[in-house]
Design a protein around this nucleic acid. Sequence first.
DNA 1: GAACGCAATAGTGTCGACACTTTCTTGACG
DNA 2: CGTCAAGAAAGTGTCGACACTATTGCGTTC
Lengths: 257, 257
Amino acid sequence: MTERAETGADSDPSLANEAETRRSADSSERAYNTIRKLLVEFKLKPGERINEVQLSRSLGVSRTPIREALNRLASEGFVSLTPNRGFFVRSLSTEGLLDLYELRSIIECAAFKLMCERADDSDLDRLRRYWEAIVDVYRDQPPDIILAEDEGFHLLIAELSGNPELVGQLSSINARIRFIRRIQIEHPSHDKAQITSHSAIVEAAVKRDAENGAKLLREHIEMTVSATQQALKDALLKVFAPDNGADLKRRRRVRDL
Amino acid sequence: MTERAETGADSDPSLANEAETRRSADSSERAYNTIRKLLVEFKLKPGERINEVQLSRSLGVSRTPIREALNRLASEGFVSLTPNRGFFVRSLSTEGLLDLYELRSIIECAAFKLMCERADDSDLDRLRRYWEAIVDVYRDQPPDIILAEDEGFHLLIAELSGNPELVGQLSSINARIRFIRRIQIEHPSHDKAQITSHSAIVEAAVKRDAENGAKLLREHIEMTVSATQQALKDALLKVFAPDNGADLKRRRRVRDL
DNA sequence: GAACGCAATAGTGTCGACACTTTCTTGACG
DNA sequence: CGTCAAGAAAGTGTCGACACTATTGCGTTC
């Protein structure tokens, strides 16, 4: 979990994270970003074993920063580590996905309620303005932008809860489901329901209607889950299809997704 | 976040964590446990800069496993990393403590509700039996045992929610506030209110009274916060007292706690 | 032809070394 | 007497190498 001193080069939507910790754009940090990108974009496939030497070669750095990055990613749940066998891309099962979304729902609803209690009017107005500033062009943006703006909206609610731990948790969750959300946004099933949801949530916020707002949020999140599940299936098919009948090992990996 | 292949040697209460990831008792893992222990026991003082070379010497390993451990601890919020300056013990302010307890309350209440919905009767009975098995001797145990049993109780609720993410989150939170809780347990203000709380929570659980149980939990957690704050102040005083007037640097550190 | 074991290979875990950055010390200067 | 600067010391970030473990491939035996 790290705030990035943006390099400008790789432009996936940044996320404000775990306050005090800062890193510069050194090898370790670059490795972290690059590997996470590979994971998010399915370049490293779920269940796959990660070869440190290979990675270090392709990134042009030694194994040390690679391992540091992988350790961080392990702490954040992207990969898992088996002693003497190495790091593996963690396969996010449909079940695991539901668990993550459930957690997200819990955090966000709580954040919303706290925001209603604690935020002053100018804060709530900030939320309203944030949304109004992007709502008009929201649908026409490229996926990455939509995603960043959507995450920004939800993160702002977390910030206005006044509890930085909630922001950190939500950031971490966002990072882990980002690749799924990205897929979902590009999927035909993605429609503008999200937009009306957000508008309703903002409305509840300015009225400080905690209960209703939390309910809307919960529904908003639950709504995306089923759509996302379908999108996920399609995406996995797409990822594993090209070299499908090739070997049995790969087949086996598909199964445990 | 890691499940430990218990070495038996250092016996602080283990915590079941982030499922898939496993580590053996290699240097890196030992370093992680040892350093976390140092942090938890205030041997490494808040705000202090961590000297990797010194640590590596005292643990008898090279800096590599030390750095891996510190990176993990950074992801978990124990320490922070400033580029080219190193790792620092993260100072847990009173405010930060409240935030963490608030998060814990959110997670636990949600877990309780989910447990009421999803757990079958034998699960709930397991919770009841867990508590009944320890309630009689609860108060007479040494602090570490009390702490472990208490964490176990709350973790079991999280497990019975059926969402492993909640277990992971709670484990992580527990780890971060453990040293505080330990202090609180040893503090004179610690009384048996906890025991009656737990009993009432179990009662609500077997009745599947989600609302009431969540309320009890919330109160249970809030109750400990104020007591803990006092205990924290005393502890910090104790920690920084010995070499208090020594230099100004250290004084400055006390201030930002 | 299949199962087993052994050798060869690939890969992780840890180490010591070195380059570069930050911090401390010392001494000159105003 | 305090301020600043240059050099020395300490410390981090990264590297390549090596030891040890897991995996793969091959040959042997039944």
